[in-house]
Design a binder for these strands. Sequence first.
DNA 1: ATGGCCGAGCGCCTCGGA
Length: 257
Amino acid sequence: MTFRLATWNVNSLKVRLPHLLDWLGRAKPDVVCLQETKTEDANFPLVELHAAGYQAVYCGQKAYNGVAILAHSRPQDVQHGIPNFVDDPKRVIAATVGDMRIVCLYAPNGQSVGSEKYQYKLRWYEAVTAWLKDELVKDPNLAVLGDLNVAPEDRDVHDPKRWAGQIHVSEPERAAMRNVVDEVGLADAFRLFEQPEKEFSWWDYRLAAFQRNWGLRIDHILLSPELAKRCIACSIDKTPRTLGRPSDHAPVIADLR
DNA sequence: ATGGCCGAGCGCCTCGGA
């Protein structure tokens, strides 16, 4: 019996709800972390998700950001935002599902290297790292999923020369993500396994980037040592990106024993 | 690869995304 964790930046839950429901039926994940729901809590599509067999906890706002965790049983001990880090955008929600602590993250985009939003992105990462260290002490079964907006290595970039030093791949951003992985002691589930080359989770809407596979791997599943031991597979599901009116991101899936 | 796309808002252009 496997337990399937997934993360998907849906880029508007309202627009993507048909895709999400279709994908839930096909992929049958046990836990799903959503980002960029762009939906106020009052408008969250609880009825449709209940009908599909999922409970949900969520934290949203109008137009931008917004995160949610879906599971067959109602997620418990819900935490909104990063403790001791004042932040307006709704980027973080955490909850307990079964024996796992699930952290759903939507990292800041950063806009351009050196900008004010870039500095904010790096500060946000520092706060996340400090928080997750505490979180792992409290619960060794820790899974961190989300749109981390960093392509950690050149092999996660379709054209590393073209992207060198740019937002999402700059060294300080990579160091910030490495800190989460190394200082907290997590594992990038995708790299626990042999993978095909040029596997990405995001492709620009412009210039037929998906058809050309001009993408980045910026959506990640990070597992604590206890959960990494149980992980038997990790992959990116490109199917929803091939459909009409797709999200620009594809779901990432990890299977655990 | 970068004009070119997409979603949201009180909206027919602008902002933000990545």
